[in-house]
Design a protein around this nucleic acid. Structure first.
Lengths: 242, 242
DNA sequence: CTTCTGAGGATTGTATACAATGATACGAGA
DNA sequence: TCTCGTATCATTGTATACAATCCTCAGAAG
């Protein structure tokens, strides 16, 4: 096993810096802070009852995670994601998810396979019942299982990173439309391909799964979601650019 | 143009933190610090004449860049890269470089095209003369040009990240073997495909280019390079694992 | 009325002091 | 001799103090 935890997750949830990091990340992903909103070290620190030091360190990490942008001697701003960024991410992910499915086919363990089957089964149940919340949760988990099963720390980390990026956008579309059930059907096919040991098919299906997810997102209002934000961006950009 | 500088480069070269970050990164990539060597905040700070604060912040960033691993309350260690990590990186890169070549074909500017042609031409010259140092430099630059030409901040950053990872390994192999000239021939073909607007071919060639680079590396002693380090790793791992 | 300028305040950048944690070594007891 | 506990020290984690920078806005000059 590799001991090379590339871009290791910030697992240190119990240090102040770790707590600040995780809380800020969640807040940004959940939309508590608007895009392009300025984050002040002191304000955040006071809110969480800590000094500026751990906040600053968390900021540096969030910057590399791509969630905020720090302009020297000026401030930290929540990053905006443009329509094109989302498209690029999905194109990149479609390739990597394919590779991941291939490797997962080759390396998945018995336990992981079982969890995957359970996941698909459960999701089918919630789809029938119309439980969108649980469906979204299971959808995320399905991908995580596959990332872990591919047995590559490098790839796993890349994909988890991307997955996180699009969560901000996905939250607004997946649960609102009936992509959920369709998505799970595709999961089932991917799972079957993996179970059958058909790496080529698994790769192909996972690849298409991402393309479909993206196209559905476009069809169901990605543009609307971003229409307002792009306008805001236009006005703010010049100032931010220093 | 996107204003979303994902995982933005640490461009702040003039703050102390920025300088520490860049110097440490260079030192690690250049092998000044051994893999698994412990980096002490105070020692580094004294060497560079700064306090621990900017050093700590640089550490947090280097951790997310994957160059060091920080164990809470214990220390920062230069990460090791296993043989499998290198292989995974090249497999991932082969896909992304292909995508990059495709997008570059669609978006490359006149200036970028000219620089690319110049690059190949110059490299051909240095290859004849046996200037391995310049050849390696031009090789890096060729890829950078393509990353920029693909006109995707997301993809560009991903690839630059990976490129950097393997630099540590590549330094030991590319310049030592006669891969240089062969590599440049492949660059030329990729360039021609891009110039001809043949995206499919460019993608294919760039993909193969990576595979070839990896296979050459394996053939030319990747295993030997890592034989020693893997041994060291075995002994250090348990301690590091906390 | 517009434009330049500079003083003041707000915010980030860095250094230092203190707290908490982990590693080590030594000695007592079995 | 071996093991366990404890004292001590080295190192990291956090808070605070101070320095540097940037932004704002009032006021003077044109």
């Amino acid at each position: 096993m590799s001991n090379f935890d590339v871009k290791q997750e910030v697992t240190d949830k119990y240090s102040l810096r770790g707590r600040v990091f995780h809380k800020l990340r969640d807040d940004i992903l959940n939309g508590k802070y608007q895009e392009h909103e300025e984050l002040k070290e002191m304000t955040i620190g006071e809110e969480m009852g800590v000094s500026r030091t751990p906040v600053r360190e968390a900021f540096r990490q969030l910057e590399l995670e791509g969630l905020i942008q720090i302009i020297p001697n000026k401030g930290a701003y929540v990053t905006g994601i443009t329509e094109k960024d989302v498209k690029d991410i999905y194109m990149i992910r479609s390739l990597l998810e394919g590779l991941c499915a291939r490797w997962a086919t080759e390396h998945i363990t018995k336990e992981q396979m079982e969890e995957m089957e359970e996941n698909v089964y459960l999701a089918k149940f919630h789809a029938q019942k119309g439980h969108l919340e649980q469906l979204a949760e299971l959808d995320n988990r399905f991908h995580d299982i596959m990332y872990e099963a591919c047995d590559s720390k490098m790839l796993e980390h890349q994909l988890k990173d991307f997955h996180q990026y699009v969560l901000r956008v996905r939250k607004k579309t997946l649960s609102s439309i009936n992509r959920g059930p369709k998505s799970n059907e595709e999961h089932e096919k991917i799972m079957e391909a993996i179970k059958a040991g058909n790496a080529d098919l698994a790769e192909q299906l996972a690849h298409e799964h991402m393309i479909n997810a993206y196209e559905n997102m476009v069809k169901c209002g990605l543009h609307e979601v971003y229409a307002r934000q792009d306008a805001v961006q236009e006005t703010i950009d010049p100032k931010v650019k220093k």
